Simulated scan of single mutants.
Amino acid sequence: MNETTTHVVLPGIVEPAGLLVEETPVATPGPGELLVTVEATGISYAERAMRRGRYFMQPAFPFTPGYDLVGTVTAVGPGVDPAMTGRRVASLTKTGAWTGRAVVAERDSVVVPDGVTSEDAEAVTVNGVTAWQMLHRAARVRPGQTILVFGANGGVGGVLIQLARHHGVRVIGAASPRHHEAMRRDGVDPVDYAAPDLADQVRALAPAGVDAVFDNIGGATTRTARSLLARGGVLVSYAIIDAVSGTGSLWPPFLSHVGRIAFWNTLPGQRAVFYDLWSGHSRTPKRFRAHLEEDLGRVLQLVRDGVVTPRIAARFPLTEIVRAMELAESRTLDGKVVLLP
């Protein structure tokens, strides 16, 4: 009899209660693939958007969500070093990680060092590589500079703050007031992201402007963010929550946003970048792989060394995905909801 595994199915645009838990046969890894027994996966903003059909290029319904996972390799496909069997890996999947056993691409997987728990590694996989690449590759922030981070209490923002502080960078964090005290304890200067006088709050802290802004909101917030840059500063936009949270087609606001970023980047005095984690995945796969291995590897080493503390807000068995999703969408958390198959 074929082995089966538990997985979560998103059948369509449903409320969290509409998520299904089913059994499916365990797949066989193909060329360049690994079969992984999943030890931890999690809920990110991407899955919350997918539930509403509001994530760019998401698969057709029904499908299994799950942007990343951590687990142990139990079998390898043709062309993969057999020595990978038994190793723990952190894998980027975009979808398919909410399961007990998953087939993943070896080139999208990085070995997790000893001394890092699977839960901690999961909390910094997609969030950690995104934060590292935006800080060090997109913005190229230097020690002694000042940055403004929107979504400072979120999954990416929480790692970005820690990486920046470790790099000797001053951080101004934009988030809801309920998160401000925790941010102060982390050495961050908090501002209210929704306040009408947001720009004035930031200018009071950085009269000459900030050296980089990391914006995940879009719309009017992005325009305000750019106005707060110092000369030579860089705006890094990596999401448009404003549009994703709305209704109607995502393409007009997305194309308008990316076009505006591209235009700003032609003007002298500042840079503007739209960061996409998957950029180059198909066009320059060797470069994508090299950067993933190097950047996620560094983040995992910082976790092992106690420099970066993964922020886990709650842990749930995978079979309790409904309760987990409801909590993740409550907007009350500081950290990631981790799922344990």
Rank of each mutant, 00 (worst) to 15 (best):
S109L: 09
A164K: 10
H136E: 01
T37E: 15
G66Y: 01
V188T: 06
G280M: 09
W132L: 03
G12Q: 01
I241W: 04
V104K: 06
V103N: 09
V26L: 04
N2P: 14
A139T: 02
A121R: 11
G233Y: 08
T130C: 05
I312Q: 10
N216A: 15
P190V: 04
H180Q: 07
M50T: 06
H257M: 13
S249Q: 06
A220L: 02
H281L: 15
L148N: 11
E47R: 05
I241L: 15
R203I: 03
S256I: 00
R52Y: 02
R283Q: 13
A152Y: 10
A131P: 12
V236M: 03
L340W: 02
R226L: 13
T130P: 05
L292A: 09
R107D: 11
F61K: 04
T72W: 10
V89G: 02
A40W: 05
P190M: 13
V9Y: 00
A49Q: 14
Y193R: 15
W98F: 11
S249D: 15
F316T: 03
A46D: 10
T309L: 12
L296D: 05
L148H: 13
E15M: 09
T41Q: 07
I43D: 05
K286E: 15
I13K: 14
V112I: 11
L250A: 03
D211F: 06
A243Q: 05
P190T: 06
R260A: 14
T221P: 00
M325E: 13
F56L: 12
T28R: 13
T5A: 08
V258H: 09
Y45I: 07
V104I: 00
G233S: 01
V273Y: 01
V103P: 06
P310N: 03
